[in-house]
């Protein structure tokens, strides 16, 4: 009995480590591949050779400068946008995954508590006032933070806090933002409507180098490594987690703040890209299970990769016209999700 159970357990442990290594390694490679693809693709052709030359030149390995036009297109247009796509995709998928645990609902997404609604009202106000993209991003961020504080305050107001209270408060607040957005769209000028709609669907064409957003993503990933095992406990219920030694309330507050600020950071860069934050964590839960030590980094990598691929399609599919990337994420996400759901043998979720 003992020897046999030992063998089973060893193979389980090895299985887990192999899974981590293969999955995260594979996803990281997929991210790099989609980055290369994004840099090469577009109306101005860049060859692999030119890209390689450019990389060598930038790294100081070669003093032979690349073709100037290609170099400009890659470093000033495609690279900032591609890096933004990676950061936004990772942030949204990670936020969705955290939100699902916080609300104990596998159908939660990063926008369910109204962060994107608040951001949208801020962004649309700036667009209507004819302000530039710096102001649009800035006011989107302010709108997202306003929502964060509003929902947090309201859900605590009666002194009794619970995730279901938070969910109800957030959903109703989001509906309120939705009404304001509809009102703004209906009084908006025709020449501003296109920009407003693109923002609402999610669009990376205004994105610049991710800068502090990227830094924040890395910090969030580090923090989520700390939270991963307590999150596993939370899946079996709050009381069970508490009985097993998790400080539940501080963890919930951390989750709320982290998921909200990640979402705020994502919508500030790209508008409300839909679907990614719901579908990516879900697909991964169905295919690799719910161990957050593996799930959180895998979700971030998969979200990054998916959004970059979607954005590359969005700007090339009917070039020179660009599509909002949110449309493409849904086009890719829906069939992939349904396919995974059909194949899944992990029971009903």
């Amino acid at each position: 009995m003992t020897t046999q159970s030992l063998e089973t357990s060893r193979s389980y442990s090895q299985q887990q480590k192999l899974k981590v290594f293969l999955l995260l390694g594979g996803l990281a490679l997929a991210c790099i591949a989609s980055l290369v693809l994004a840099l090469l693709t577009g109306s101005i052709k860049v060859t692999v050779g030119e890209l390689w030359q450019l990389i060598q030149f930038q790294l100081g390995l070669s003093d032979q400068p690349a073709n100037t036009l290609s170099a400009t297109v890659v470093t000033e247009l495609r690279l900032p946008r591609a890096l933004s796509a990676l950061v936004v995709g990772a942030e949204l998928a990670l936020a969705g995954c955290l939100m699902q645990v916080l609300l104990r609902n596998p159908l939660a997404d990063p926008y369910v508590l109204g962060v994107s609604g608040g951001a949208a009202v801020g962004a649309l106000l700036s667009i209507m006032a004819g302000l530039g993209s710096f102001w649009v991003s800035g006011s989107a961020f302010v709108g997202a933070l306003t929502n964060l504080l509003l929902v947090f305050g309201l859900s605590h107001a009666s002194g009794v806090w619970s995730p279901s209270r938070l969910l109800l408060t957030g959903v109703v607040t989001a509906a309120g933002w939705g009404a304001i957005i509809s009102f703004m769209l209906s009084i908006g000028e025709d020449n501003q409507l296109r920009g407003m709609l693109f923002w609402l669907m999610g669009d990376l064409s205004r994105a610049s180098l991710p800068g502090w957003h990227g830094l924040f993503l890395l910090m969030s990933l580090a923090l989520s490594a700390l939270l991963a095992r307590p999150l596993n406990m939370m899946l079996r219920g709050e009381l069970q987690a508490k009985a097993l030694g998790v400080a539940v309330y501080p963890l919930q507050i951390t989750l709320y703040l982290l998921a909200s600020v990640l979402t705020a950071s994502a919508v500030t860069q790209a508008g409300s890209v839909g679907f990614l934050g719901l579908v990516v964590p879900h697909i991964l839960r169905l295919s690799i299970g719910s161990d957050h030590r593996l799930l959180l980094p895998a979700t971030a990598l998969a979200g990054a990769c998916l959004l970059l691929l979607a954005d590359t399609l969005a700007r090339t599919l009917i070039a020179p016209q660009q599509l909002p990337v949110g449309v493409i994420t849904a086009f890719i996400g829906v069939p992939v999700f349904l396919w995974v759901l059909q194949k899944s043998n992990r029971g009903t979720v």
């Binding site: 104990r104 596998p106 030694g245 299970g289 719910s290 029971g347």
Partner: peptide, 17 residues
């Protein structure tokens, strides 16, 4: 709660937390 998927062994191992 079984709202989220987990295996029997994973669940038992949570006792080590």
């Amino acid at each position: 709660s079984t709202a989220f998927p987990a295996t029997v062994l994973e669940t038992a191992l949570q006792g080590r937390h």
